[in-house]
Design a protein around this nucleic acid. Sequence first.
RNA 1: GCCCACAUAGCUCAGUCGGUAGAGCGCAUCCUUGGUAAGGAUGAGGUCACCGGUUCAAAUCCGGUUGUGGGCUCCA
Length: 636
Amino acid sequence: MLRITLPDGSSREVPEGSTLQDVAAEIGSRLAKQAVAGKINGRPADLAALVADGDRVEILTLTSDAGLEVYRHTAAHLMAHAVKDLFGDAIQVTIGPSIENGFYYDFYSPHHAFSPEDFERIEGRMQELVDADLPIVRDEVRRDQAVELFRSLGEEYKVQLIEELTEPVVSLYRQGDFVDLCRGPHLPRTGLIKAFKLTSVAGAYWRGDEKNAMLQRIYATAFPDNKQLRTHLARIEEARKRDHRRIGRELDLFSFNEEAGAGLVIWHPRGALLRTLLEDFERREHLRRGYDLVLGPQILKTELWQTSGHYDNYRENMYFTEVDGQSYGIKPMNCLSHMLIYKSHMRSYRDLPLRYFELGTVHRHEKSGVLHGLLRVRGFTQDDAHILCTPEQLDGEIKGVLAFVQDIMGIFGFEYEVEISTRPEKSIGTNQDWELATNALMGALKDSGLEFVINDGDGAFYGPKIDIKLKDALDRKWQCATIQCDFTLPERFDLNYIGADGEKHRPVMLHRVILGAIERFIGVLIEHFAGNFPLWISPVQAIIVNVTDNQAGYAEQVFHYLRDAGVRVEKDLRNEKLGFKIREAQMAKIPYMLVVGDNEMQSGTVAPRYRNGKNLDPMSAADFVQHVQDECSRYH
RNA sequence: GCCCACAUAGCUCAGUCGGUAGAGCGCAUCCUUGGUAAGGAUGAGGUCACCGGUUCAAAUCCGGUUGUGGGCUCCA
């Protein structure tokens, strides 16, 4: 007998030669049925794997992420099998991992571009392979044998993968006549895959390197049953409805125009108002926290961009213009004028920290393929600040920014993830600088009690950084706030201050944004609220709707009263039925509809209806102003 | 930038085999004065993204450009 340990700490005896499947059966018939794979001493393994005396054993089911991952990875093999059956030697298989909510498989297919029309055939073949219930068998062979095998199959990408492995023995998984190099584990039979769907096809570079061949990636998803699959697809459909590009058009917030140029936002009245409200909010919040408002020009001489290093490192992304033989660079970042402001005086340590804040509009020539609604544009406005301080002040300044970020995200109710990126291979600055800055960033995060992940070697070449990523409706993460230490600019611009010792010292610089780019932030904001903005930031807070023409004069009076009182109000006095006007206002997601009929006119009131359909008791216009003010102040 | 797809009225879309353009919504006018998510009638709107090619004939086929979408790479 063998003695094994289970995750709950209990131990169990099983006969010699037992597999994970046997162990599962030993524990319970239901577990045996639900098992998809397992772990032996923490390492993932097939159900067919043998257990040994003293092993720590865990059974994975579809209720765990790890189990679902195995399930989807097996589904990826199933899809590759089907594609190989249908397209044969014309294609080569490469890799196919499971991902969040699904999986993909990359194929090298130089002669056939997969299209959604192929999906049905591929799904059909997958179903046949499921129905055939093929056993999935693990096979371990020497590396050279594996190379030989895949070479004979014409699978050059697999050959390349194996040749780069260091292990003397590699594992293969076979199902029917399909064989794939794979670490595993996998489900024991193809018949266990229940619900899957191919979702999209896209190009992807081999190994994610743009110098390599372009492969074709088929995205798909798989769930334990059809109900869960349908739920997932419905959720994606729901998310599409809150796509900021769609809502932006429906609410008439902004547009793009082919004649104006790609990635250049055109703000319509309501969108421009929303943006202005955000910007006003930002100015207030920055002034409260000891920032100075500054403004720099849109274009600066090219020589200055050479001094800063942007010309050497960022030229590809910049727009240039030349007048009277003088070349200017249109600013892609706001730091330059901030450096010049610092340099405009002799600085004492008593002046520090200096916090220069600018809602700075920048232009960057982003690659055409990356543009995406408001979330990735070529012209945008950052809520940018550069903090110049002494090394001793660095820690406190970083904490101040983190607290700022938390305040603001709390006001909007955003979910976010925090990442810290450390020194990359190609970088400048001394080890001492990097250590100081990295420790300061990490220490501040720890002290702030924020959870974070470390991206080793992912920092900017000029310094480490903290990134805060918001999630959009489709669960994609978008970087908004970022805090970056910068060693180059104080150096390049020879910034200094006179310390208490009477000597010149180099200040430390922090570059930071809170919302990031206003455009991107609004994009995420739209999706977050599905266009139902909180009252304090709604471009239109209320709309007056009259029941008949009879109240038009009274409605006008109320309208002017509210507008004078600072309420962002519109009026709909058209000759339409009340229900029709309510419906339109509702679809425009306007928070309050103020109904005025004969009753209200006689009593000098309005009858507010909230966009969730609830009615408030009729109140005077003055009371409504108070009501709006109260609601706005509750939100921030 | 790369791969694939797409571009028809303000919006959402139909348009068969290449034979000269259609719907709903919206808009305008008129009727209707109606109390909380669509009242009715009539009408106007399109160089089928742009440029070129094939053809007797192009929204339709081919090439290019621009823009858009899904990804990859890159990034706020």
